[in-house]
Write a protein that binds this DNA or RNA. Structure first.
Length: 584
RNA sequence: GUCCCCGUAGCUCAGCUGGAUAGAGCAGCGGUUUUCUAAACCGCCGGUCGCGUGUUCGAGUCACGCCGGGGACGCCA
């Protein structure tokens, strides 16, 4: 009998059927959820509310429900009624082993997970830096969280399109092109294009401030660019290409690859339609020469305008964001879109979504799901936004480099005999992974304090702790000359016995819940927490139960546990965007 | 001024749609290695969940008020 991927869901369905069989009134919700291990694996709390609403004795209702449970359930679980009417379910050891045997390979887990979001098509809008500028620490969270959410949704069965909505259009290009044409240093450009663009922009900006004639020339450059003059477009195109190449170096380290890069310039010719439609529908109105949208039903947005066209006639990000929503629905056939953006922009997104909903409703377009996946600020240890000592933004490139350096120093003390090249790889994986994981492990909505020591000190809920568990698991298989997931070997496994074996197996079986929770709320920290607890159970098991024992059936079942732990740890870490290691 | 978010152990944080005795890590104290990586494991210590009132079988979680911190608020994104 194949074990269902998500036992909680399957149990819920069984209870629902039992409720009908027991003659309970509808609606009845079983409310199955993971339980405190002291009480069991799962608990159903539904009878409490049900009994209350009908002034029944909850324990009697629970009794009635338990009496109607199908034989498969009572065979697989210890069932107990506790307290005011909780029903506790503890999977028997044979059931645990059965689940582990049914989910032996990555494809089997993936197939199970993919059931929850089939048919959904999401556009993920994340990272989205400005071209011609360095990515700095302020770009970290969007990239890291966005990628993890993308992977979680895809794993859950959704079609995911990663769209890098870069800032590649704006008034700064006039000054930049002016300076580029006159002062570009080709050698510097080849070495580090963004560094050079930043230098040129500052140069152009200063020159324009100092000299009105330069300002006029810069303005003329901008007009020519916007008018589509080929020579200007060519420079602009070069700037963007070089910028994207530089971004990709960071993305490669973070495991990010976009499907689309449709920046603001792409929507240049698509904003006019937005103005026309919204004006015609009466949603937008002229105010102080700008085109704005008010929301009379909203306490604040009845007065605080959503400016969709500036008084000088130019577009702003409200214009392009509206055009983007339309394009994503009409052309890309998205059923939903997510914006992984700083929470300080929540007003903008609230106004944007309100406006888009009214617009779509008024034009009979199907309404997409739109969600602002917000996140807090990265703070320094002084609890203020993280900066360098001189008050500059920290470049993402430098941050990741420092992470690797710190990890390298650590590998050299912990495992000095490894080959130099391998130490470098370990440093890169551990360093980058530590930065990613520190960002993901905390609830994204809150600010978080960036602290190197806590991040790479490798204690507690950190990337290194998890990667270390993976490395130890790999080491076991290396030492024993065994292959993880070897079915023939696993067939010899005897039943789970020790407390640590059982605790580990129980935690493994909870993987589906962790995925569901993390993907459902687009909060990767739920997966982090699960993986951390799993690694903890593994470490306790590793310490208490030796795998390399003589008894072949004991060894086989422990190897099976190791193989599943390895599989789920790696699957989880990869979903978060981290790489894993053989040794560290 | 209006609105939003936050306040949980000395520190950094979990706590899923209200569920059982509020949990981790760090720091502190004490243990564990002739055994698969000790970057580990085990134990102890530590909380009036900012304060108050209310809602109910049940509140860290919901409502209202207050105190404290952060953020947003017309042409940057």
């Amino acid at each position: 009998m194949p074990a269902p991927f998500n036992l909680a869901i399957s149990l819920d369905a069984s209870l629902q059927a039992a409720a009908t069989a027991a003659g309970l009134e509808t609606p009845f919700a079983a409310e199955v959820r993971g339980a405190d291990p002291r009480h069991g694996d799962f608990q159903a709390n539904g009878v409490l509310g049900y009994a209350k609403a009908r002034k029944l004795n909850p324990r009697a209702v629970a009794q009635q429900l338990v009496g109607a449970l199908p034989a498969e359930v009572t065979a697989a679980y210890e069932v107990a009624i506790a307290g005011p009417g909780f029903i506790n379910f503890t999977l028997k050891p044979a059931g645990l082993l059965g689940w582990l045997q049914a989910h032996a390979r990555a494809e089997q887990l993936a197939a199970g997970a993919a059931q929850s979001r089939t048919g959904e098509a999401w556009i993920l809008d994340y990272s989205s830096p400005n071209t011609a500028k360095q990515m700095h620490v302020g770009h970290l969270r969007s990239a890291v969280i966005g990628e993890a959410v993308a992977r979680l949704l895809a794993y859950s069965g959704a079609k995911v399109t990663r769209d890098n909505h870069i800032g590649d259009w704006g008034t700064q290009f006039g000054k930049l092109i002016w300076a580029y044409k006159r002062h570009v240093d080709q050698a510097a450009l080849a070495r580090d294009p963004i560094e050079e663009f930043e230098r040129l922009y500052k140069l152009g900006n200063n020159a324009a401030d100092a000299d009105v004639a330069v300002m006029d020339e810069a303005r003329a450059e901008l007009v020519q660019l916007q008018a589509g003059k080929p020579a200007s477009l060519e420079v602009w195109r070069q700037i963007n290409e070089a910028s994207l190449r530089a971004f990709q170096q960071v993305y490669d380290q973070l495991g990010i690859r976009f499907d689309l890069t449709l920046g603001e310039s792409f929507y240049n010719d698509k904003v006019a339609r937005v103005y026309e439609e919204l004006a015609k529908l009466g949603l937008a109105q002229e105010s102080q020469r700008a085109l704005v949208v008010f929301h009379p039903e909203h306490p604040r947005f009845k007065e605080q305008p959503f400016i969709i066209r500036k008084s000088d006639g130019a577009a702003n990000y409200a214009s392009t964001d509206l055009a983007t929503i339309l394009y994503r629905c009409e052309v890309l056939k998205a059923t939903g879109m997510l914006y992984v953006v700083d929470k300080r922009q929540s007003d903008h997104f609230e106004q944007l979504f309100l406006t888009a909903r009214k617009w779509f409703a008024a034009t009979n377009r199907p309404e997409p799901r739109m969600e602002h996946v917000d996140f807090g600020t990265v703070l320094g240890e002084n609890n203020k936004p993280l900066k360098t000592r001189s008050g500059e933004n920290i470049k993402l490139k430098d941050l990741l480099l420092e992470a690797s350096d710190r990890a390298y120093a650590l590998v050299c003390t912990k495992n000095p005999d490894l080959p130099e090249a391998e130490k470098r790889v370990i440093a890169e994986v551990v360093g980058t992974g530590s930065v990613q994981y520190a960002d993901l492990a905390q609830n994204r909505s809150s600010d978080y304090v960036f602290a190197w020591d806590r991040m790479i000190s490798l204690e507690g809920n950190t990337a290194a702790y998890l990667l270390y568990a993976v490395a130890r698991l790999r080491s076991i298989f290396r030492k024993l000359g065994a292959v993880p997931g070897d079915t023939a070997g696993e067939a010899a496994a005897s039943g789970l016995e020790t407390a640590t074996e059982l605790a580990l197996a129980r935690k493994l079986m909870k993987f589906p819940e962790a995925i569901l929770l993390a993907a459902g709320q687009m909060r990767p920290h739920f997966l982090c927490l699960y993986l951390y607890e799993l690694a903890g159970e593994f470490s306790a098991f590793y310490n208490a139960d030796k795998v390399a024992v003589d008894d072949p059936s004991v060894r086989a079942r422990r190897l099976l546990l190791c193989a599943r732990t390895l599989l789920i740890l790696e699957t989880g870490l990869h979903l978060l965007g981290l790489r894993t290691l053989e040794r560290m």
